[in-house]
Design a protein around this nucleic acid. Structure first.
Length: 377
RNA sequence: GGACGGGUGGGUGAGUGGUUAAAGCCAACAGACUGUAAAUCUGUCCAUCCUUGCGAUGUACGAAGGUUCGAAUCCUUCCCCGUCCA
């Protein structure tokens, strides 16, 4: 059981501020969760993540950690928190996203998903029940139900068939989870995932059926799979209000910095995305003045910090010229400095939003953000 | 002085008579990235012109000349570089 304490709600938009109590700390929402697929947020130490960035919760991935090093190994080593030396909360994705991203390596059946390992080709059956067990072996604070992240575009029929299966999987996974939890003392949660492709009717249908599970929180998945941005937002807008008022709502896999407020305005409490970390490694840095593609020749002798308004270690200590040099030279330090900055930017945006919701000024904040043209993009 | 080997576009390095403005790699310059098979992937990369096209023209494989319908590729001379022998 996960307690969610709603602290404030914007009277104009649907934005909310709250506290999510987990077995590994209290999470202030709205929250952004850095992605650490393989038990590490690439390029950043858990110390930086916790201390200077002050991330309260990160994501890890069931499919990847199951294949390597294996959930039983992680269990024997004391669980994922201890294994990766991360004392704060962890949310694990079920492998549902790999149904989408590794579509050529899997086969969907009623029982679950048969994956052929991208590492060595071995076949592994992922079921609603087995993915719960694996995530509990990790010691995940928030586990996700096995779902099918459907590619875009999909026909209404394809979307319905897929969604219905995801709902059946959610029921099975949840039943198994409840049974398992009878014997487990520590608090864990299992979130079902609303699917339905880009059809608002299906989304609502799916949400209504998943509500019967009375889960501790609900996710909206199947977004950012190639559809236009407005569509993703429309789907969230159609779904979020149907989800329980007193429980956290999590939109999976979003988004660009300027999109974060849009989701929060639609009543979203939790988000995660690889963009800040992956783009950092690829030289795309998010600043308060827009994107900086650090490899551009114009930064060759730019002595300014990446973002003068940013207080991160990278911006306080290094010039754009130096960051560009590290990038061009293929130096490993670049990934670290860039990721620290991008994550700081995302987490700062979340903190700003939370503050404004608590102060009752979120509508002004949202207007201000919307009126800024997205620079360099 | 002699004997070999070699000089290719910013670098490296394929190419030994015919879709070769010349492979590949690197560098350089851009673009992409949304529950991470990503420290990855894609494009451009001689010049000028335009009706931006598997376009036109010019220039280009050390230099000059020659053979040939056609040469980076064959011949001659010269200039460089490397290795070895005196």
């Amino acid at each position: 059981m996960l307690r969610f304490e709603l602290q404030a709600q914007c009277p104009v938009t649907g934005a909310r501020a709250g506290l999510l109590h987990t077995g590994h700390g209290i999470i202030e929402t709205p929250v952004f969760m850095p992605v650490g697929t393989q038990g590490t947020v690439k390029g950043v130490t858990p110390k930086d993540l916790a201390d200077s960035l002050d991330a309260k919760i990160i994501l890890a991935n069931t499919y990847h950690l199951f294949l390597r090093p294996g959930h039983e190994s992680i269990r024997r080593l004391g669980g994922l928190h201890k294994f990766m030396s991360w004392p704060r909360a962890i949310l694990t994705d079920s492998g549902g996203f790999q149904v989408f991203s590794l579509n050529s390596l899997r086969k969907i059946t009623e029982q679950g998903v048969l994956f052929h390992s991208h590492l060595n080709g071995d076949a592994h059956m992922f079921t609603p029940e087995s993915t719960v067990d694996v995530q509990l072996a990790f010691g995940s604070d928030i586990a996700m139900v096995l779902d099918e992240c459907l590619a875009y575009p999909a026909t209404p029929l394809e979307a319905k068939i897929s969604m219905d299966r995801t709902i059946r999987w959610a029921r099975k996974g949840y039943a198994h989870f409840k049974k398992r939890m009878e014997a487990i003392k520590t608090p864990h949660a299992l979130f079902p995932i609303v699917q339905g492709s880009m059809y608002a009717g299906l989304r609502k249908d799916c949400a209504m059926q998943l509500l019967e599970l009375e889960a501790d929180g609900y996710a909206i998945g199947g977004l950012s799979v190639g559809e236009p941005r407005e569509l993703s937002q429309d789907m969230v807008e159609a779904t979020a209000p149907l989800l329980p008022h007193g429980r956290p709502r999590y939109v999976m896999g979003v988004g660009m910095p300027e999109e974060l407020p849009e989701y929060v305005a639609r009543g979203v409490d939790m988000m995660d995305c690889v963009l800040p970390s992956r783009n950092a490694r690829n030289g795309c840095l998010f600043t308060s003045a827009g994107r900086v593609i650090i490899k551009h020749a114009q930064y060759k002798e730019d002595a300014n910090p990446l973002d003068a308004k940013c207080g991160c270690y990278t911006c306080r200590n290094f010039s754009r010229a130096y960051l560009r040099h590290l990038y061009q030279a293929g130096e490993i330090l670049f990934a670290t400095l860039a990721t620290i900055h991008n994550l700081k930017r995302y987490l700062d945006i979340m903190r700003e939003m939370r503050e404004s919701i608590l102060l009752g000024t979120f509508p002004e904040y949202l207007n201000a953000v919307r009126s800024v043209p997205v620079l360099n993009s």
